[in-house]
Design a binder for these strands. Structure first.
Length: 723
DNA sequence: CGTCGTCTTATTTTT
DNA sequence: TAAGACGACG
């Protein structure tokens, strides 16, 4: 039992409290994952259950993988047959087992966002809606929210559909959307859990079967569960009630995706007799960082209440830096310089992260990092499955496997170009509908050149189907890519992305080789597969705050702490006071990612759309404890902006009026101060305009005549560098 | 059917 | 500003 000895008292309690409902409130950096995996291993090692009798749910594939690896490490061998995965993957697994009971055929497809919209759009048109006034993605979002709440079309009440969105047709459209899905034997992402839950609700025998087989349930990141996930869990836990949920209400940041913090706040009522264990000893961050995070989050109401305390004695460290700067370029320069300095001191770049509120902020940093040859990676962005070439290849595979998969067929119909455009597709749809056959079955009906192209494609699919049957999926994919002309299309493509796309397809082929059946692989691709290209290497990580949850770094830069951007104005408009608290939790998540140092920055002027807009320090900065924070930077500009400009963000929750802070002294060494003003006659360099000569100079404004520009340009001096 | 130019609209996005 | 969507034209 030496694995128990490695835990502190509270962690140990969380691991050993095995019977009955348990809520583990795990503050940031308190060893949440360790508790979860140790608990899992403990259940197995004490022979309380077999691996197949424990259900462990996470939100991300990454978390699931990490858990799997750590359990294997603890047990000394890989464990098979675990019910361990994301909510969606487990939902899919259940649904495949009982497809017929959910009104599906066993080989149903899982649709991506494109497919969903392609299905919904025509329905909206038929309903006579103006798609400009009611954009399909907006309706899709509403449907998704209903699904998050476990509402099938028949369960949606008028109260759930209280706006006149889509002229009151939203509910009806939801119903017909679900019908269309069923008719093409497909589900969307939200359906995986909705159907799985309905399945358990409507079939007591199936539920009883799971009650018999699943004795323990472990849930990670419980604060991010939505209602349907909660219902699913509750159904499964009903009988034995051995459910252990781990989470942190202070890190709930996905309400806009349907997550309900209430789930965690309500846990003790939902599961009477529940025990609660708090993990509060933080082994990650220095005392100032912890104190700053704690002070910040204390401004939220309705918390379950936890206080992070340093897990180690003497974990003093640098104060949290708060730096005011002129604009985002200067902010990027400051960050770049500090990263340079860290690198010179021998720090690993993999231990540095820049965490932004909104993805557009990454650009300024990318430019700076490229210019200074600092390796970085942008985390997040497109997932493997979301890449066009992967979707195309998958659609080819889907249409090969399932002749009736019209959505897949439609997607690849004209990729590569075969002269089959909108008009042809429309005729094809009509014929197919009239004859009651899938699109691919209607090809012969069309005459002329279009018909020929169609027939050729359909013949191709027949051939590939034969290859799939005879030689398996790998050869089939190769044949598809060759014979369809897809690979040729990419090879002819001279754009810089093309080689990467070819590479991605190769990667797809390699992954495919690991699977016995194409069906299994298709699920893997849409539910699990991720792209981990450039994951390795000593690089700075650049990502959104949302993307950073669960990660930690020695050094964390938190730029853009300005009212309007962070807390985000749009979020506040939509979600009111609750949204402000969620933004604050996001700030808390950001701060607690840092082990040794956190650098918060804000600028006086930020670029929005076209022009520059004055910006004000985030109210969150005021909520940091003065004695743990060190302010620096050019606040003169901040004051100027504050005094001269009208409020940019007419906030529903106005930031308190602030007095200009008296701390105009630039940081020692003038790191953030501009070099001497650029003199008239100086030669300068501009990213876009190239080299030029300064004609006039006043304050930070310059007039420059560039060599390859006819007219002199007026610009701000921070845009040019002395040449 | 494909290309070019104009118009439009700018958060976060685990699956 | 700058990328993506859409409609008019060739």
């Amino acid at each position: 039992m030496d694995y128990l000895a490695r835990l502190n008292d509270e962690q140990r309690l969380a691991v050993e409290t095995l019977d009955g409902p348990l809520l583990v409130l795990a503050g940031a950096g308190t060893g949440k994952t360790r508790v979860l995996t140790t608990r899992f291993a403990h259940i197995l090692l004490t022979k309380r259950a077999w691996p197949s009798q424990v259900l462990a749910v996470t939100f991300t594939n990454k978390a699931a993988r990490e858990m799997r690896e750590r359990i294997a490490a603890m047990l000394g061998s890989k464990v098979e047959g675990l019910w361990l995965g994301t909510f969606h993957a487990l939902g899919a697994r259940m649904l495949r087992r009982h497809a017929a009971l959910a009104g599906l055929e066993p080989g149903f497809s899982i649709l991506d966002t494109d497919d969903q919209l392609r299905l919904l759009k025509p329905l909206m048109q038929e309903a006579g809606l103006d798609l400009h006034r009611f954009p399909p993605p907006a309706l899709m979002g509403r449907i998704q929210r209903w699904k998050d709440r476990g509402l099938t079309p028949s369960r949606v009440t008028p109260a759930d559909d209280d706006t006149d969105f889509a002229q009151g047709k939203a509910r009806a459209l939801y119903a017909s959307y679900q019908e269309r899905l069923a008719s093409v034997n497909a589900v969307d992402f939200g359906d995986l859990l909705l159907h799985a839950t309905e399945l358990l609700r409507n079939h007591p025998d199936v539920l009883a079967e799971y009650h018999r087989s699943l004795r323990y349930i472990l849930v990670d990141e419980y604060q991010d569960t939505n209602l349907v996930q909660y219902l699913w869990l509750r159904l499964l836990a009903q009988a034995h009630r051995n459910i252990c949920c781990v989470g942190d209400d202070d890190q709930s940041i996905y309400s806009w995706r349907g997550a309900e913090v209430e789930n965690i706040l309500r846990f003790e009522q939902d599961f009477p007799g529940a025990r609660v264990v708090r993990l509060e000893a933080n082994y990650r961050s220095t005392a100032p960082i912890l104190a700053a995070a704690a002070a910040l989050i204390s401004h939220n109401e309705g918390r379950l209440g936890k206080t992070l305390r340093p897990g180690r004695e003497g974990a003093e460290g640098e104060k949290v830096a708060v730096i005011g700067l002129r604009d985002s370029d200067e902010e990027a320069r400051m960050v770049g310089q500090r990263i340079e300095a860290l690198r010179r001191e021998g720090n690993s770049l993999a231990e540095v992260a820049i965490l932004v509120r909104a993805s557009f902020q990454t650009r300024a940093f990318e430019e700076r990092l490229i210019a200074w040859a600092i390796p970085y990676r942008v985390v997040g962005g497109l997932r493997f499955y979301e890449r066009a070439e992967i979707r195309d290849a998958v659609a080819y595979l889907r249409a090969t496997l399932r002749p009736g998969d019209d959505l897949a067929f439609e997607r690849v119909l004209n990729v590569p170009k075969r002269g089959l455009g909108d008009a042809a597709l429309r005729r094809l749809r009509e014929t197919a509908r009239a004859q009651g056959v899938p699109l691919a079955g209607a090809a012969e009906a069309l005459g002329g050149r279009t018909g020929e192209a169609f027939t050729r494609l359909v013949a191709g699919f027949a051939r590939w189907r034969e290859t799939l049957r005879r030689d398996g999926p790998v050869l089939c994919l190769r044949e598809i890519l060759d014979e369809s002309g897809y690979l040729e299309m990419l090879e002819k493509d001279r754009s810089p992305e093309a080689p990467g796309r070819v590479e991605n397809l190769k990667e797809l082929g390699r992954a495919l080789a690991e699977f016995e059946t194409l069906e299994g692989f298709l699920d893997h691709v849409s539910l699990v597969m991720e792209n981990d290209e450039n994951a390795a290497g000593d690089r700075v990580s650049l990502m959104t705050l949302h993307g950073a949850k669960g990660l930690e770094f020695d050094t964390v830069f938190l730029p853009g702490w300005e009212d309007g951007l962070f807390p985000n104005q749009r979020a506040l408009e939509e979600g009111g006071a609750k949204a402000l608290e969620e933004e604050r939790r996001l700030a808390y998540v950001g701060l607690t990612r840092a082990r040794l140092r956190a650098i918060v920055s804000h600028v006086a002027s930020r670029r929005f759309y076209s022009g520059w807009q004055p910006a004000y320090p985030s109210r969150f900065i005021d909520e940091l404890p003065e004695d743990r924070v060190e302010h620096s930077g050019s606040t003169m500009l901040e004051r100027e902006a504050a005094l001269s400009a009208p409020a940019v963000f007419a906030s529903v929750f106005p930031s308190p009026v602030r007095l200009p802070r008296v701390r105009d002294v630039p940081e020692a060494g003038g790191r953030n101060a501009r070099a001497a003003p650029i003199a008239v006659g100086a030669r300068v360099f501009h990213q876009k305009f190239g080299y030029g000569e300064v004609m006039e100079s006043e304050g930070d404004r310059l007039v420059v005549r560039f060599e390859n520009q006819e007219r002199p340009k007026s610009l701000i001096s921070s845009y040019v560098e002395p040449a």
